[in-house]
Computed example of a mutant assay.
Amino acid sequence: MTLPRVAAFTDTYLPTVNGVTYTVRTWRDRWEQRGGRMDVVFPESDHDPAAAEHPVGSIPFPFYDGFRVGLPSVPDAVESADVVHAHTPFGVGLGALRAARAGDRPLVASYHTPCAEYAEYLSVNGRVKRTVRRAATGYERWFLGHADVVVAPSERTAAHVEDVVAVDTEVTVVPNGVDTDVFAPVENPRERFDLPDGPLVGYTGRHGHEKRLDVLVEAVARLDREVTLVFGGDGPARGDLERLVEKRGLDARFLGFLDREDLPAFYAALDVFGFPSPVETQGLVALEANACGTPVAGVDAGALADTIEEGETGYRAPADDPEALAAAIERTFAERDRLGETCLARRDSLSVEHAVDRLAAVYDRLRAQSVRR
C-alpha cells in the first residue's frame, strides 16, 4: 500500500536542536526509509534546506533569544499532501490549519509543549502570569479543536489534553521514540568532552526557566559526595545557572549545544542523568539516556512520572524539592550498575520504529476517512 504524502509544519527546526526538531527529523527520515514522503515546513533560518524542506518567512520572537516565529504560509510544494501534520499551534501551525482547510485534508496536531509554560517569558507578575496561562490554554483548545486527531507522546500528556485543555477532538498516544541505532553505549565517552573520572551528574537540553534546572544545581549542592555537574545545551536560563553554580561552589562544566552525534557519548559519560523539569510531555532526553545505559533521577511530575520507571530505570522525587531530588540522585548512584543494566535490557521497547508504526496507522485511517468523504 502506498504511504500517504505528509506535510509537517513546525515552528522549531534546524539549526535549533531540541526535542521537537529531533522528533520531526527522525519521523521524516523513517517515513522516507519506508518509501513515503514527508515535507517539512519551517521558519526560515541559517539552515540550508534539503530536499522536501520548505522555509517560510519568519520574525524574531522578542521574549526568547534565538527563536523565530514563522508566518502562516503554505508553500506550493505541499499542496498535494494527503495529510497535514502540525507540530505547533502558532505561526507555522496556522499555516498547517490553512493547508488542511484549503485542500479538505485531514489535520493531525502533535502536542509537544503546553503553551501555558511560556507564561514565564511573557509575564511580569503573578496576576499577568495567570492571565497568560488561561489565555494560552484557551488558544490551545481552539487550535486543537480544528484537528482530526491530536497526537500526544505519553498517556500522562494525553490525559492533560483531555482533562485540562478539554478538547473534544480524538486524542491518541504516539511516543516520539528513540533512534536506538544512534543512542547506544559508547566506549570511553568521557574522553570526548575531557571530563574528570569522578562521579558525574548531567543534563542536556534547552536551558529554559520552566525546566527548573536551578533545582538540579541545589540538589547536587546537597549531595554527600564530590560531584561534577555537566550541562549540555543552552538557553535563556544559562546565565542564572552559571551564577548559581558559582555561588554554591560547585564543579560544573557548561558544554553548550552538542551535535547529535555527540549526544550518545554525553549520556554514556554520566553516572546519573538529572531531570528536574516538571513540564515534560514525554521527556525524550531521559529515554535517550536510558538507551545509552544511563539511569535518570528526575521529578515525579508531568510525563516523567511515567517515563522514569521507579527502581527500574531511575528514581523520582517531588517537583521543586532539591532535598528530595538529592536523595533520588544518591539512590541512583548507589544502584547505578543494576539500573543501567535494566535500561539496556529495555532499549528495543523505546525504538522510534514502534512510534512510526503507530503514526502510520493514524495517517492511514485519516486518509481512508478522507477518501470516503
Rank of each mutant, 00 (worst) to 15 (best):
W31F: 03
P89Y: 00
S45D: 13
D65F: 05
V56G: 08
P106N: 03
F90W: 07
V41Y: 06
T21I: 05
H87P: 11
S58A: 15
A102Q: 12
D65I: 03
F61Q: 08
V128S: 14
A136D: 03
V17C: 10
Y118Q: 00
V150C: 03
Y121D: 03
W31Q: 04
E44F: 14
G19D: 11
E53F: 13
G138K: 03
R133K: 14
D39T: 02
T131L: 14
E140A: 04
P55E: 09
R141Q: 03
G126Y: 07
D48W: 14
A135M: 01
L14G: 11
H85R: 12
D48G: 14
P114A: 04
T10Y: 01
V150E: 01
E140M: 02
D104A: 11
V17L: 15
V41W: 10
P60A: 09
D65Q: 10
N125Y: 12
R30K: 06
A116F: 11
G145N: 03
Y64H: 06
I59C: 08
G126I: 06
V40Q: 12
A152D: 02
H85L: 13
F143S: 05
E44R: 15
V92A: 05
P106F: 04
G57C: 14
F67N: 10
R134N: 09
D148P: 01
Y139S: 04
F63R: 08
E44D: 15
T113C: 05
V24E: 10
W142H: 00
A116L: 12
V150F: 00
N18P: 09
Y64V: 04
L122I: 09
G145R: 00
M38Y: 05
G19Q: 10
G66S: 09
A52R: 13
A77Q: 14
C115I: 08
F63N: 02
P55V: 09
T113D: 03
V78I: 15
H87Y: 11
G19I: 10
P43K: 13
D39P: 00
Y13F: 06
G103R: 11
T16C: 14
S80C: 11
V24T: 09
V84T: 04
R134H: 11
G19M: 11
M38F: 00
Y139C: 00
C115P: 04
G91M: 05
P49D: 12
E44I: 14
P75M: 10
F67I: 09
D11R: 02
F42D: 07
E79R: 12
P72K: 00
S80E: 15
D29K: 15
T137R: 14
L71T: 00
T21H: 06
A116E: 15
A100M: 04
D82M: 04
V69E: 08
F42Y: 14
P49M: 10
E140K: 05
E53N: 13
L71G: 07
E117S: 07
A96E: 02
G70Y: 12
E32T: 13
G93Q: 02
V84M: 00
R133G: 07
V74W: 01
T131Y: 11
R98T: 05
V83S: 00
V151I: 05
A51G: 11
E32F: 07
A51K: 10
R34W: 12
D39E: 01
N18C: 12
A135H: 01
R68W: 07
K129Q: 15
S80G: 15
R28I: 06
A81G: 08
R105L: 10
P55H: 09
P15F: 10
R101S: 03
P49Y: 13
V151Y: 02
S110C: 09
